[in-house]
């Protein structure tokens, strides 16, 4: 199954007002890898993610997802294999009930009703939220909304999961639970986040982006131990790798 790759080559993107957002980004993520994309605010993470689901098509350089180079013609194929979880679950949950929302994607794929039902309950039980299926999304708590938003993407059985800040707004317990759930997934995962402790738990590989360029790409621990690199990119060591503020021990 080596074909579930995500390959970005020399990608450039400039906003219509002339601000350069991405300047020559290249990386290749292979099947089953779990990769973090970290960077300061405005580093270009979100713009990069927008390219991975085909919302923006590359003007310079190329993006390849699975067997398809991303072009206007292949956008729907790419979207079928890339599941995108948005930062704000309210943007993603637009249907009247949780069930309808999770069924939205599979129904659009044209699957028969029976299959859709199975997929919806599978996805919901995987996120431990099957009991919410008849509730309207606007009445859920933040953690529940997040879980349902992820289930809505899982129900389409994507090969690649792309997540934008999956842990923002979650309480510690919900965050911990989410990390455990994400860890159990076999999908290729691409996670853009500021939560570097989550990266320690989930991602073996980290790509650091600063001012639209890849500053580092390698094993997570190696990168997080490079204090100078992190400082240059406006980042900080994850709390777990910092010295203890009480006893001063490293």
């Amino acid at each position: 199954m080596s074909h579930h790759i995500v390959a970005v080559k020399d990608l450039e993107y400039t906003y219509p007002d002339g601000t350069p957002a991405i300047q020559g980004v290249s990386f290749r993520i292979t099947h089953g890898e779990s990769v973090a994309i970290v960077g300061a605010n405005g580093a270009g993470k979100s713009t990069l993610l927008m390219h991975l689901n085909g919302y923006l098509t590359p003007r310079e350089g190329s993006v390849q997802v699975g067997d398809f180079p991303l072009t206007k013609a292949t956008v729907s194929d790419v979207r079928r294999s890339v599941g995108m979880v948005f930062q704000d679950p309210d943007d993603q949950l637009f249907m009247p009930t949780v069930f309808d929302d999770v069924a939205f994607g599979p129904l659009n794929l044209g699957l028969p009703a029976e299959d859709v039902k199975v997929r919806v309950s599978d996805a919901l039980s995987r996120m431990d939220v099957l009991h919410l299926k008849d509730r309207p999304p606007y009445k859920l708590s933040g953690g529940e909304k997040r879980a349902v938003a992820i289930a809505a993407v899982l129900s389409m059985s994507p090969d690649v999961l792309v997540m934008d800040e999956p842990t923002t707004g979650l309480d510690p317990r919900a965050r911990r639970q989410l990390i455990a759930q994400l860890d159990s997934f076999q999908h290729t995962k691409i996670i853009a986040t500021h939560d570097l402790d989550l990266v320690l738990d989930l991602c073996q590989r980290t790509i650091v982006i600063h001012a639209g360029k890849v500053m580092a790409d390698g094993p997570t621990l190696e990168i997080f131990n490079d204090g100078k690199l992190l400082e240059r990119c406006h980042l900080e060591k994850p709390l777990r790798l910092q010295g203890c503020p009480v006893c001063g021990r490293d």
Partner: peptide, 22 residues
Amino acid sequence: DRAQRIHLAMQCRGFTGEIHQM
């Protein structure tokens, strides 16, 4: 802004102008 994000979220899940419900 939100409308744009919602539209994107719908497109990501194969929306083509018709909402199917079971």
